[in-house]
Nucleic acid binder design. Sequence first.
DNA 1: CAGGATCCGCTCTGATACTG
DNA 2: CAGTATCAGAGCGGATCCTG
Lengths: 139, 139
Amino acid sequence: MERLMTDAEITAAWSDICKVLNKDQDELKGDILSHIGNKWSLFVIHAWGIDGKMRFSNLESHVNGISQRMLTKCLRELERDGLVSRAVYAEVPPKVEYELTSLGRGLLVQVTPLWFWIAKHADELKNAREEYAKSRGMQ
Amino acid sequence: MERLMTDAEITAAWSDICKVLNKDQDELKGDILSHIGNKWSLFVIHAWGIDGKMRFSNLESHVNGISQRMLTKCLRELERDGLVSRAVYAEVPPKVEYELTSLGRGLLVQVTPLWFWIAKHADELKNAREEYAKSRGMQ
DNA sequence: CAGGATCCGCTCTGATACTG
DNA sequence: CAGTATCAGAGCGGATCCTG
């Protein structure tokens, strides 16, 4: 599952990358980004790495710091975009299970390299910030 | 550069995925996501697929619809996080060149699978939305 | 050319309170 | 348990004007 690329691979893949970047479905990309690109969506999707079926309160406790309002909103959007399915059980107390659709699982998988990358470059990322802060502080 | 995974591969990779998902560097992830989750950052980074060195006006014309204010702000943030470097030339008229750092190129590469995926599933994504709209409209 | 500064509407968020 | 409703504040984002 180590899918990070070397610099050489990056160089080799560059033209392919550019192709995608230019495929101007910009509108669609914007749409997708507007949903996965909000503060919480990716973290919420993230949570299904733990279990295939998640209840509301379950998600709430796994996504650190999310408010119930935002979780609700986020789930509705994900549902609307076909990434998550929602099953309501007519029980008392109420029970609602959320699952990733195959589309949603696909997205999770695509995003995973990003998590790997962040984990791998954590120090670099942190240092970059600190150095920037220092250099600005001196001025 | 075709890096989409099959369902079988996904299943096989799942435990690895979960490991990363739990590595709780949540704060750091949040930082990175603040870029992904910002309306413009990814599109701006995106632009460097075209050329390694970009000037301000160049970026402005490649990122559709961005205002000068937001481009400025976005560039500052990317610089702060060590993803972009900035070179000022003491000329008249002024000239400033922005480049992705190796960290920035890394991020671009990690995000690329996501663009591929969006491009590949564009129809599915659009359909999912339309069906959702329909089913809600009927109620 | 590459922005900094300012004004302003709007949306996004979080807290709190309430419901089936 | 799984939400909905409401409200207030912070920040986003655009337009405009200005500068080295």
